[in-house]
């Protein structure tokens, strides 16, 4: 299974370099526009999802290569689990890279707030967003292939589009007031745990789908 994860990272290398370049540019730009670190983490998670997630983990390349991958000495379970593991590593890589870029930005003459809480907030957003989106996409990808994926990738775009309206809605206000009883760290931890549980459930669904699938 680890060889399959290694394979994903050989395929991701170029995209990762592109992601770093984009993050450097975007971070400097956003910080100059007074966007806070949390916002940059959300942006980086979406960028990582599109560049590395859709570009490599779930793509036409992968769909066509499934035949050859299944002739290798790996089990069907290993085939699925490796993909979920790669997804999680991409999420952590996105958070780690963005944190590193923001730390570098501290050396630049730009003033912004970047604390331990910002880094934890970044971890929750980066990992949470990427794994939740992959939780929806991967089982569909295994069941129906790329054609379905082309439609599903609009999910994060729709979420991003409606997020500003949601932030100004009464539902959001009531959620915020409910959550205000808890500390930020607690809320972020719960969000992170829930997203990982969703990811685990999605993995189980994919394992079932792939165990009966004819490629």
């Amino acid at each position: 299974m680890m060889q399959l994860v290694r394979k994903d990272f050989i395929l991701i290398t170029k995209s990762y370099l592109l992601f770093i370049a984009c993050m450097l540019f975007i971070s400097v730009l956003c910080l100059n526009l007074d966007v806070d670190a949390g916002g940059i983490y959300i942006f980086s998670a979406l960028l990582a999802f599109f560049i590395m997630g859709i570009g490599n983990l779930v793509s036409d390349h992968e769909q066509d290569a499934a035949y050859f991958l299944l002739t290798l000495p790996v089990s069907r379970n290993g085939f699925v689990l490796s993909k979920y593991m790669s997804g999680l590593i991409v999420a952590i890589l996105s958070w780690f890279t963005t944190s590193l870029v923001l730390l570098i930005c501290l050396l630049l003459p730009i003033s912004f707030r970047f604390t331990g809480l910002s880094i934890f907030l970044g971890l929750s957003w980066s990992v949470g967003i990427i794994v939740i989106v992959l939780s929806i996409i991967l089982p569909v990808y295994y069941a129906f292939g790329n054609k379905a994926i082309r439609w599903l990738i609009i999910i994060p775009l729709l979420l991003a589009s409606f997020s500003s309206q949601f932030v100004h809605s009464s539902l959001f206000a009531s959620i915020v007031s409910g959550l205000s009883h808890y500390s930020t760290e607690y809320v972020l931890s719960v969000f992170l745990i829930i997203s990982l549980v969703i990811y685990a459930l999605s993995c189980i669904i994919s394992l079932v789908v792939v165990s009966i699938k004819d490629f």
């Binding site: 035949y67 299944l70 002739t71 069907r76 009966i212 699938k213 004819d214 490629f215």
Partner: peptide, 9 residues
Amino acid sequence: LKIMMDIVK
């Protein structure tokens, strides 16, 4: 052949 390789069940 695909059945033999477990590509098809």
